[in-house]
């Protein structure tokens, strides 16, 4: 049984958990003994969304629901998509997004789920030839939410898809992206950032399958964890037979700011093709004491020095966001979180 069915049918025993290789660091079955009742329909008002002001179209799914979004051939749009959970309860939402040939879409997606929710969203994003999509996901769920998102992205040749997932964690939070990459000069950027405090958990899982020759993938995820938080990064790039001359780079770098915080990372490259340029780098560590002393010797107080170095560490991910307005919203969001 899949996750959507397990939630929809309130069958907690079928939730993924430790014994599922892909979910071992995001154990839902061990956590959710009993799936909560379905979320009640929501009638009240919502505050404005983080990206509302930047968007020319808005779609809000509260406590489940479906959306179908179509960007016609050659059109251009900035869409704010909000996945909201109000009040406790379980629900599933879905969105099907089709981006026509040579169209451009900036998708500004937010997760805003209350405590006590058990929620999944399933997205399918199909990007036609020559189209360009930038997807920015800001997941700021309640600390007691169990919040899942699963996106399936299908690229056509000469398409461009760039993504940045930003997460502040939840009781359990997982943002999963699977990309089918056709090669053929299609370009993929998959970035992520998790900033976690308290007992929050966040899992960024990506699977990229290169099915055709001459595809490009760059991936950079960074994370900062403190208190008793736990960050998870699972990145897999599969280069199938015949996907020759694939160029793929994956990087994951984590910063652990307290003894009781934790990061689990599993970068994987599976290569069955020839003449590929694939590399991955993975580092997890503390702030550099020597750099910290250097900054303090110049007169910068300890807290400020820590914030400066931490912001610099994550800044690289923020800088890679193409949409200027969104980049500034994200920059402010990051600064808020790091200085809290």
């Amino acid at each position: 049984m899949n996750l959507v069915a397990a939630i929809a049918e309130r069958n907690a025993a079928e939730l993924p958990g430790k014994r599922d290789e892909d979910w071992r660091w995001t154990d839902l079955r061990g956590l959710v003994r009993e799936a909560p009742a379905p979320s009640a329909p929501f009638a009240g008002d919502l505050p404005a969304g983080r990206f509302d002001a930047l968007a020319d179209a808005r779609k809000v799914l509260v406590n489940g629901g479906e959306a179908v979004i179509e960007i016609p051939k050659g059109a251009s749009a900035v869409l704010a998509l909000r996945l909201v959970g109000r009040g406790p309860g379980s629900h599933v939402a879905s969105a099907a997004i089709r981006v026509g040939a040579n169209a451009r879409l900036t998708l500004l997606e937010t997760y805003e789920r209350d405590g006590g929710t058990l929620a999944d969203a399933t997205l399918t994003i199909a990007v036609a030839e020559g189209a360009a999509v930038e997807r920015i996901v800001l997941a700021e769920d309640h600390e007691d939410a169990v919040s899942i998102s699963q996106a399936e992205v299908t690229l056509s040749p000469a398409a461009r898809f760039a993504q940045t997932v930003l997460a502040s964690g939840a009781r359990r939070q997982r943002l999963e992206t699977r990309v089918l990459h056709p090669g053929g000069k299609a370009e993929l950027r998959l970035d992520g950032l998790y900033l976690l405090g308290d007992k929050r958990h966040s899992d960024q899982t990506t699977v990229v399958t290169h099915a055709g020759a001459e595809g490009l993938t760059v991936q950079l995820t960074k994370g900062v964890v403190r208190d008793q938080a736990r960050g998870v990064f699972q990145g897999r790039i599969v280069v199938e037979e015949g996907a020759d001359r694939t160029d793929a780079k994956m990087g994951h770098h984590g910063l652990i700011l307290s003894d009781r915080a934790e990061i689990d990372a599993k970068p994987e490259l599976e290569i069955y093709a020839d003449d590929v340029a694939c590399a991955h780098g993975n580092t997890v560590g503390a702030l550099d004491d020597e750099a910290l002393f250097y900054a303090r010797q110049r007169g910068i107080p300890e807290d400020e020095a820590r914030a400066l170095l931490t912001e610099a560490f994550v800044g690289e991910v923020v800088d890679r966001i193409d949409h200027e307005g969104a980049r500034e919203v994200v920059r402010a969001w990051v600064a808020d979180r790091l200085r809290a």
């Binding site: 750099a291 250097y294 110049r298 910068i300 400066l308 560490f313 690289e316």
Partner: peptide, 17 residues
């Protein structure tokens, strides 16, 4: 001297000053 990745020299010196 230490390297300070991600912090432009100007930003660093202004913060210190």
């Amino acid at each position: 001297p230490l390297e300070i990745p991600g912090v432009p020299a100007l930003t660093f010196i202004r913060t210190a000053l």
